[in-house]
Design a protein around this nucleic acid. Structure first.
Lengths: 182, 182
DNA sequence: TTGCTAAACGGAGACACTCTCCGTATGGTG
DNA sequence: CACCATACGGAGAGTGTCTCCGTTTAGCAA
C-alpha cells in the first residue's frame, strides 16, 4: 500500500471512530470523509460499505475484549456474581457506540456477516467463560456461548436503544444469570 | 372528515400494512403513497411522521393483544410452561413486521414516545400476567412487568434482526422464564 | 535527477428518500 | 347551484449514498 493511501486510511478510521461515538452508527459517511479531509470516493474505495468501516474502527477494541475476559476470569467469589460480572463486561464491550449492540448481536452466529471477525472474537471470549463455568458444573447443560451472547446482546440492544441507565440494566442481567445457572 | 379524505386515509393505512410487512419498517413512504395512488403530500398530511403511520397500522393489532392475553391466562399447567407460553405469545405479537421488536421495545417505558399508546397496551397485558403469577407467589419479588417486556423484547429484537428460527428462540425464552421465577 | 506508470485521489453528479409548499380541485352545505 | 373550507398531489429543496472518471502523485528504474 502506498504511503499516502495508508495515511488517508488511518485518518478515516480515526475520524470515523470519533464520529460513530458522537453521532451513532448512522452518521453520514460523506461527512466523515469531509472531516477526514478526503473525498467520498477515497472513503468508499477503502471501505466499500459502512460495515467495512465499522470493522476497521473496531480493530483496537479486539484487544480490549481479551483483556477484559482475562480480568473477569480472575474473579474469585460467588458464581452468580461472576456471571453477572461477565454480562456487564460483555454489555459494556458491545455498547461502545450507539447502534453497536444491535449491529453486533444480529450478526452473532452469522458466518458471512461483514463483521464476522468481531463476533467470532466475542463468541470465543464467551466460550472461555462457558468453559470455566462448565468446569465448576455451574452451568445448565442446554446453554451454550451463542445463547449467552444473544441473551446479553438482547439486553444491551434494549438498553442502547431505550437509553437505559446501568441501574436498570443490572437487574435484567441478574435475571439472565439466574436463568442460565443450575 | 370529508369522505374523500377518509377514503384516502384508509387506503394508505391498508397499503402501509402490506408494505411494512413485506419490506420492513424502513420502507419508503413516498413509495407507499404512490402505491396507494396518492401524492406524498396527502400521506404526510394524514401522518406527519413515520411513527404516526405505524401507529395507525397497528390499531387492529391492539385487539389481538387482549385476545391473546385472555387465551394465555386460561392455560392450566406448570407455571414454567405458562410463562414460556406468554413469552412466545409476546414475541409473536411484537414481531408482526420486520423492525417491529426494536421499535416497540425501545419505546417501552418511554412516556412521550409516538407509539406510547401501543407500549402501554403491551405493558398492561404483561401486568395481567404478572398479577396472575404474583397470586401464585411464583414470581421473584424484584421482577416487574416492564422488565419482562424488555427481556422478552430483547430476545425478539435479536431474533428479528438475526432472522432466527423459532427453535432458536424458545430455549432463550425458557432461560428467561427460569430466571424470573422463584 | 528525471521520466514513467500504476495507484490513489476527490469531487461532480446520478439516484433515492424525506418532507414542504402552494396552486388546483372538490365535497358538502346554505 | 354557488361558495369555500377542506383536501389533493406534485414539483422541488434538502440530505445522504455511492460511482465514475479525469487528475494527481508516490515510488521506482534508468
Amino acid at each position: 500500500m502506498r504511503a499516502d493511501a495508508k495515511r488517508n486510511r488511518d485518518r478515516i478510521v480515526e475520524v470515523a471512530r470519533e464520529v460513530f461515538r458522537e453521532r451513532g452508527y448512522d452518521a453520514s459517511l460523506d461527512d466523515i470523509a469531509k472531516r477526514a479531509g478526503v473525498g467520498p470516493g477515497t472513503l468508499y474505495r477503502h471501505f466499500p460499505t459502512r460495515d467495512a468501516l465499522l470493522d476497521a474502527v473496531m480493530q483496537v477494541w479486539v484487544d480490549r475484549v481479551t483483556e477484559t475476559t482475562d480480568k473477569v476470569l480472575t474473579y474469585e467469589g460467588p458464581t452468580r456474581d461472576f456471571v453477572v460480572g461477565w454480562f456487564e463486561a460483555y454489555v459494556a464491550l458491545i455498547s461502545l457506540h450507539k447502534g453497536g449492540p444491535a449491529k453486533i448481536t444480529s450478526a452473532m452466529g452469522v458466518e458471512d456477516s461483514p463483521i464476522a471477525t468481531k463476533t467470532r472474537i466475542l463468541l470465543g471470549a464467551t466460550q472461555r467463560i462457558v468453559d470455566h463455568l462448565r468446569a465448576e458444573g455451574a452451568l445448565r447443560d442446554d446453554v451454550d456461548a451463542l445463547q449467552l451472547c444473544r441473551l446479553a446482546g438482547g439486553v444491551a440492544v434494549v438498553a442502547d436503544q431505550g437509553g437505559l441507565p446501568p441501574e436498570a440494566v443490572r437487574p435484567m442481567l441478574e435475571i439472565l444469570a439466574d436463568g442460565v445457572l443450575r
